[in-house]
């Protein structure tokens, strides 16, 4: 339970970092890098969330015998 709650804060931290990086890069005039950092942030979080989702589906499958 505790380990998972850290994940919420990790995702929030990544979100804020990506947002700040975006602003910095925009003001520095590099629009493309701003877009790239957004994509990288989303993909990193997606990797973390996908494991959780497969775990959720596995739990539901075994519990409700949804084979």
């Amino acid at each position: 339970m505790i380990m998972n709650v850290d994940l919420i804060f990790k995702i929030a931290a990544i979100g804020i970092i990506v947002a700040v990086l975006n602003q910095v890069l925009k003001h520095a005039g590099r629009e493309e890098q701003a877009m790239m950092t957004t994509l990288v942030g989303i993909i990193v979080v997606l990797m973390m969330v996908i494991n959780l989702i497969s775990n959720l589906f596995e739990t539901v499958k075994t519990m409700f015998r949804l084979y």
Partner: peptide, 19 residues
């Protein structure tokens, strides 16, 4: 700031409470 990441947080929270 980033609507895309907001969805992730609600998804993960739903998962944690279910588990």
């Amino acid at each position: 700031q980033k609507p895309e990441l907001g969805i992730y947080i609600s998804l993960v929270t739903g998962f944690i409470i279910f588990i």
